[in-house]
Design a binder for these strands. Structure first.
Lengths: 68, 68
DNA sequence: ACAGAGTGTTAAATATCTTTAACATATGTT
DNA sequence: AACATATGTTAAAGATATTTAACACTCTGT
């Protein structure tokens, strides 16, 4: 019953004109390493960064991150 | 254009049987001070804590936190 | 063969979130 | 009056997220 946060960032990047990690990072104001860490589930981001990513892809937050 | 995160935790507590900050804190596994800090916008929580709060009230995350 | 772009890794420093603990104030109850 | 419950505040310590900087690997194009 221990839940984990999954993310669809890589898929969203690919579906948005092959957007690179670098471009996404710059667009939302974090470093590339942060995007990699989140994308690879090294840690879950702050709520603010999560919202910025969702906004960048123009989707609701729970289409980027899923808690289950 | 600078966006901020708002939250409806207080209203959600009131609409869920006058749930106290203490009970909410215990239910999601954080301290009461953390609930107070989030509720009063002293800082925005981690994505994980945000998801736990939404789950506790059985609503989607963007009904608890709004980014605008 | 070399250069560039994209992705991945690590270590150390800094920033932010969360806890622990203590105290304050207001309200309701015995 | 004394007690309990709920909310709010603060300071310091601890945990987690993020940055900075450096290096490595693959792929594509020249």
């Amino acid at each position: 019953m221990k839940k984990v946060i999954f993310n669809n960032i890589k898929i969203l990047r690919e579906n948005n004109g092959e957007m690179s990690q670098q471009k996404l990072a710059k667009a939302i104001g974090v470093t590339r390493q942060t995007i990699i860490a989140i994308e690879k589930n090294k840690y879950s981001p702050s709520l603010e960064v999560a919202f910025k990513i969702a906004l960048e892809f123009d989707v609701p937050l729970d289409e980027v991150f899923v808690y289950k």
